[in-house]
Design a binder for these strands. Structure first.
Lengths: 260, 260
DNA sequence: GAATGTGAATTGTTTCACAGCA
DNA sequence: TGCTGTGAAACAATTCACATTC
């Protein structure tokens, strides 16, 4: 999961489990595809395949929303699209601000996937005065001095942070103070927010690290054995200062070393 | 979670639960911060706070790696950094290719977080001949005709897909055929891959949709009531063609309508 | 005395398997 | 007959609480 939540009770919101909520957008995407191809109905099996999950899970997920299928037939595509959209709150317009218009912020501003699903980029904000007024994705960048005003004038409740790590917490604080209650954080930092504010994070390098973990494992115990025995390109290990030479990991003893 | 996995047994890899693996990068980031500030040791309580998790979870996570702490004292920062890096496979160099050098691909190429953690952008690949040769983030873009050659010459096992949705599956197939076994997918599609290939996905609009779900809920049952009663900016509902006017959702009856 | 490491309890999620309905 | 909807079983993750060790 490229993602995690901060704060917020583990309680299911209106009975829908978090894991299910996280999959609704996936179903919606698959359904939208079918809808565009004018497919009228779809079975749990087919839809599950299109969404990349298994059908029992999908049926259980849908059962939390209500009884929207027809036994022996399947689900009406258009009807489900509407129900899921409504459940996700996509039948309304969500103005969003993006703070931090660097490479990533600009890419986000240009990203079509937002606009296509009820999200409207209401403003772009950056701390660099040189950026002010410059249009990105057709929207003029505004200076962060005006952040509070921009938020309130546009009725923004969702903010996207794409600043450098150091700026993220202060920006977050200002967004929250100005009334934002949902934040999508691309900066590699843990944000602390008051109760009632939702944070989701996307950390590109974390995803790669998780892949690397599995990749390493695939390389096999052969490689692990080789590394235990002889030299590899491990970053120059130096002898550790403190106590403990007797640490034990599950894969055998490890010399008390660490990267320089 | 901005993320999910496709394919691959639910089995713990070498006894480390997936949920734990997904948090290791977080701990590592927090530890790196402490290391830079020359903090020698840290308690589970402190580190958990810095990583944004609770301390019991952190201790349980670490217990899967081994006994790396000292009772009554805490964890040695440098030592843990090394152990986690090793566990994640970050003590080796991972050449990565990025396919699809649009706004997002370019932003990824420029993203510092990759390089800082053992990931090296070995090549940028795009299907547009006009891009070929043009440097992005100091690396010349290569044409996708040469994809297979690039993969094998650089020993790439991790690929990043940042193409439009339509191109993603063909690109994925070629990457896999050329030897890539881990894929980070930014395209909004489900990729199908053979057994043994790992896919993680990051879908920006999915994250926003999950936020919107919770945001909607925060707006309260008052808003829900208001919407049930009168007009809101629901996208022009039209009467549904098919059967069923008797569908029932958990929040009361719903007219058989859907977005236009 | 302080903080780790971990069994046991709890909570959440997935999968199974089949009753019930169109 | 075919496919949904859902209890019940299996599994996974989290949290508790405390014995253990420094």
């Amino acid at each position: 999961m490229a993602t995690g939540r901060t704060h917020r009770p583990a309680t299911r919101s209106r009975g829908i489990p978090e894991a299910t909520v996280a999959r609704l957008p996936l179903y919606l995407r698959a359904l939208t595809g079918l809808s565009e191809r004018s497919v009228p109905t779809v079975s749990s099996e087919e839809l599950a395949a299109a969404a990349g999950v298994n059908s029992a899970k999908l049926r259980k997920d849908f059962s939390y929303l209500g009884s929207y299928g027809t036994r022996g037939v399947g689900y009406d595509v258009e009807y489900l699209v509407y129900q899921i959209s409504r459940e996700l709150g996509l039948t309304q317009d969500w103005p969003v601000v993006i703070v931090g218009i660097g490479n990533l912020g600009a890419a986000l501003a240009n990203y079509g996937g937002f606009a296509s699903r009820g999200f409207r980029v209401a403003a772009l904000i950056d701390a660099d005065p040189a950026m002010a007024g410059k249009p990105v994705a057709g929207i003029p960048v505004q200076h962060s001095d005006d952040l509070e005003k921009i938020i309130s004038e546009n009725g923004v409740s969702i903010g996207v942070i794409a600043t450098p790590a150091g700026a993220a917490q202060p920006v977050c604080d200002r967004l929250v103070a100005a009334g934002v209650t949902s934040i999508l954080n691309f900066a590699p930092t843990v944000l602390s927010v008051p109760e009632g504010v939702d944070v989701r994070k996307v950390d590109l390098s974390i995803e790669l690290q998780i892949l690397a973990f599995h990749e390493q494992r695939k390389a096999g115990e052969d490689a692990a054995a080789a590394e235990a025995g002889g030299g590899s390109e491990v970053v120059t290990p130096a002898v550790r200062g403190g106590a403990a030479v007797d640490r034990k990991g599950p894969d055998g003893d490890m010399p008390a070393v660490m990267p320089a």
